[in-house]
């Protein structure tokens, strides 16, 4: 099982990941004679308190994606009620310890939000973590994500 060990940043257990249109969407764009936008990099917090992965809207806006789904969400400020939010079809790539051994999630429905002022560009939620193994070593100040 390949994996990476990363030192915690000031924001916590964070990872530099690449996001872009999902692989099926990239194929559709190419079939339509269009060039898929290149992936963009962002700093994502590994968040076991998030059931789903979330991306800052500023990161996906340049990708010009249309929503492909909706999901009801609960947060501390939704007052006990779930509210609907759009989902976007994204590819997420977590670079590995060496080139070519990263973790590719080729298509994932992802919610967009704003992380202005939070030093992160998104959350890696349990929809991704459920596919791998997370070991958080707080005393050593690092974590390992195996996939």
């Amino acid at each position: 099982m390949p994996g990476i060990t990363v030192t915690n940043s000031a924001a916590g257990p964070t990872l530099n990941v690449l996001i872009g249109p999902s692989i099926p969407l990239q194929q559709a764009l190419q079939a339509a004679g269009m060039v898929p936008p290149p992936p963009v990099a962002g700093l994502f917090l590994v968040d076991t308190g998030a059931s789903h992965t979330v991306v800052d809207g500023n990161l996906i806006r340049p990708l010009c994606l249309s929503p492909t789904g909706t999901v009801m969400i609960h947060t501390p400020s939704t007052g006990g009620n779930a509210v609907p939010m759009y989902q976007f079809d994204l590819m997420i790539y977590v670079p590995g310890a060496s080139p070519g051994v990263g973790w590719l999630i080729d298509a994932l429905p992802v919610t967009a939000s704003s992380f202005d002022g939070q030093s992160i560009d998104g959350l890696i939620g349990r929809d991704i973590l459920d596919r791998g193994l997370l070991v958080y070593n707080g005393s050593a100040g690092h974590f390992t994500l195996a996939y």
């Binding site: 968040d47 308190g49 998030a50 492909t68 609960h74 501390p76 509210v83 939010m85 919610t111």
Partner: peptide
């Protein structure tokens, strides 16, 4: 063109977050 893919479930699945998320509401 727009289309939607949705998990079929008897009750609407809910996503939970322990931190607030700013609205990009549907």
């Amino acid at each position: 063109e727009p289309f939607m893919v949705k998990l079929i479930a008897p009750a609407e699945p809910v996503a939970y977050f322990s931190r607030d998320l700013a609205a990009c509401r549907a």
